[in-house]
Write a protein that binds this DNA or RNA. Structure first.
Lengths: 333, 333
DNA sequence: TTGTAAGCGTTATCAA
DNA sequence: TTGATAACGCTTACAA
């Protein structure tokens, strides 16, 4: 209704100065309880809502944080992104911050640049990291506080990530513990750091047992139905016990390939995924997977970014919120 | 680098007034070409970037638009949302606007209220509409320009939507044209207006041929694997020719159910979807579907909202960008 | 405990 | 063609 009520109006109505009103609202400075009460009451009755724009100008803050969303995110990435966003949203919301989405296509950081140059955000979260990430490079130069969700070899980047290394290692260890020795690994885009991390976790599990994975059973940069079918054929030919896929997309491809080739899971081949999804949970048979709390990841990232914005020393965070969920697809025959 | 360069600095450096600089930048008012050139040159050399916050305060605009994203969006909704967002992002970006995401859970519009009350956006887009949508109700009261993507029975809402009615009708007509007479319809959440629209389109196709669908073959509010299996059993028992699913999620459920029940598509039952996805395109067999250009929908919505923000009369828009894609799943045996 | 006044970086309204 | 100067709504020294 009275959208245009300002701090001045209240001051005039109450016969006090706008400083007093400002203080009563922010709670800063010492005021008589009586004054505070009067201001509060007036606000409650007349429905004043502060103008963040003005507040921002005065404090040179926008109370926005930017979140970069790659346009090439696919079906499953979106789920991850959405859950991250939930965590981010919750934390930032409580702190009075809003989320500005910047959609970047490929290596073109123009939208991000706009956001930064126009001073529209106080900090930025990158939800994906790549080697030589142009977005990260740009942000580094900009001087704006930012962090990446994910792990990067770049030590200058503030990083928040799940301990995928430990998680993947653990899932692999569980499989090895079941007696499967010939595990095949199916990996996607090698330019994503997560791919390297998962592979490392896979290998680490072997090393802990003093073993080594069969290098000919590690397939990287796999994508598409045809390629996956080729891999599955090869995996069967090489008599692998179990196929471990790096994410749910690859797992889906593997399932399709198996169905096409008449490979029955878990009878002819076991199947596991380094990333869980409701999809894998409901597929037939349900697929063993590493379950990661993405929402929590978003919360942690947001909290860290807000702390950086407040001038605190940045700190990398490795979140250990995951669990191995064993399902039918890795049943021992 | 010199992030803190303001219009004042430029004015001082060039020995002109800030008004002049402001005009040179905005292109408003008459200035000598020479002055404009000097200002431009200075900006180019020293890298001035305007402060949107201040600009916003002066013009009482935020240059943000809010986009509401329900947290309960699932896998497939997200794809729709993401594509919409691409369209929105492109249009708003070109107009110098940014996108503020407001995640709302269920009927709790608190995050949206925060956004509105803090004057953080000049307008809002709702990417989903429900009957008695609390978000829409709130926005109506707020007075902020907003529109919904989707169709609502509420005549007070500015609506931008694909012509689902025509699209669904067309797909249904194609199926009827193939000689299938006993079409079953599988629908989801009845509180979503889209569900009602799709049903109407389905029925309309029959009416155009002077026919009526078998009411016992229309299944609404279906969700979950078990329920879908029950429906598929029933559909088979009632000797339907084809099962039409309202979206790709239901289609996926139907596919799983068929696989479980040993129902072979398209031999024992034909399958079609009122919403296409890469998923249906790649599944085996590929599924006939209505393909809709969601990105374009987002663009249209964004353009309309910006127009409303500029004070133009709101206008409902019915976008006719769809195509029926026939695939293996509806092959005539 | 409260008030005055000077910012914050723009745009807009007058004059000149 | 330009320039003072006053908004825009809020915060915050510095006074009182």
């Amino acid at each position: 209704m009275n959208e245009k009520l300002t701090i001045d109006d209240i001051a005039a109505a109450l016969g006090v100065s706008k400083t007093t009103v400002s203080r009563a609202i922010s709670g800063k400075g010492r005021l008589s309880p009586e004054t505070i009460r009067r201001v509060q009451q007036y606000i409650d009755e007349h429905g004043y809502t502060p103008n963040h724009q003005a507040r921002g100008l005065a404090k040179s803050r926008t109370f926005n944080i930017g979140v970069v969303c790659p346009v090439d995110y696919e079906l499953f990435d979106l789920q991850y992104f959405h859950r991250c966003l939930q965590g981010i949203s919750q934390v930032t919301g409580e702190a009075g911050y809003d989320i500005l989405i910047s959609m970047v296509a490929g290596t073109d950081v123009a939208p991000l640049r706009r956001l930064v140059e126009n001073h529209k955000a106080d900090g930025v979260i990158l939800t994906r990291t790549m080697f030589d990430d142009p977005a990260a490079d740009y942000l580094k130069k900009s001087g704006l506080p930012f962090l990446v969700i994910g792990t990067s070899p770049d030590p200058d980047l503030v990083q928040v990530d799940n301990d995928h290394l430990a998680g993947c290692c653990e899932l692999t260890q569980v499989l090895l513990g079941k007696g499967f020795r010939r595990l095949a690994l199916l990996g996607g885009d090698g330019t994503h750091t997560i791919t390297a991390t998962r592979r490392r976790g896979f290998e680490l599990a072997y090393e802990r047992l003093g073993l080594r994975p069969d290098p000919s059973l590690i397939y990287m940069d796999v994508s598409g139905v045809e390629q996956t079918e080729t891999v599955v054929k090869d995996v069967i030919a090489k008599k692998a016990d179990c196929l471990v896929c790096m994410d749910e997309k690859l797992t889906g491809l593997a399932q399709t390939a198996c169905r096409q080739l008449g490979v029955v899971i878990p009878r002819n081949l076991r199947l596991a995924s380094f990333y869980n999804s409701s999809f894998l949970q409901h597929s037939v048979p349900a697929v063993t997977a590493l379950d990661i709390d993405d929402k929590n990841l978003g919360s942690v990232a947001a909290r860290e970014l807000l702390s950086m914005i407040d001038g605190n020393e940045p700190q990398n965070r490795l979140v250990r919120r995951y669990q191995v969920i064993l399902r039918e697809s890795t049943a021992v025959s």
